[in-house]
Design a protein around this nucleic acid. Structure first.
Length: 116
DNA sequence: CGCATGACCTACG
DNA sequence: TCGTAGGCCATGC
């Protein structure tokens, strides 16, 4: 199983109406400190897939599509707002209220595999 | 194989 | 709040 597949498996666990940071996803995919790989994995994702990439944002509560896809942030914002996420006046999401907190402290690797 | 780049993070001024 | 520095590693030239 590739690291990308593990990352996608974790992102698929994020329920609508919640978000997670790149660092969170990396940790849950058992890749601590490899937040950058998460960004790269999502970048390599096809436009249409079953992975809710829009629910992954950076640790500052902002969208990070700026450098990769000009104008893509607006698209992502619309997707998130359609799921109930509310943006602040500064364009940031309140991680206090919308950050996804996984059921168990650290889901077993087997659970992630079973969810496939 | 080396080097630069990037949907990042944290710590520190 | 902003900028800088170090760390991370897959990908492309």
């Amino acid at each position: 199983m590739s690291k990308h597949q593990r990352i996608y498996a974790v992102v698929r666990q994020i329920p609508a109406g919640y978000v997670a940071t790149y660092g969170d996803v990396a940790a849950l995919a058992h890749l601590p400190g490899h937040a950058r790989l998460v960004g790269y994995a999502l970048h390599a994702l096809p436009e249409f897939s079953d992975v809710p990439w829009q629910r992954v944002i950076n640790a500052q509560g902002k969208l990070s599509l700026g450098r990769a896809f000009p104008g893509g942030e607006l698209h992502q914002r619309h997707l998130l707002e359609a799921e109930g996420i509310v943006f602040g006046a500064n364009g940031k999401i309140s991680l206090k209220h919308f950050r996804w907190q996984p059921p168990s402290h650290e889901p077993a690797h087997e659970d992630v595999l079973k969810a496939q």
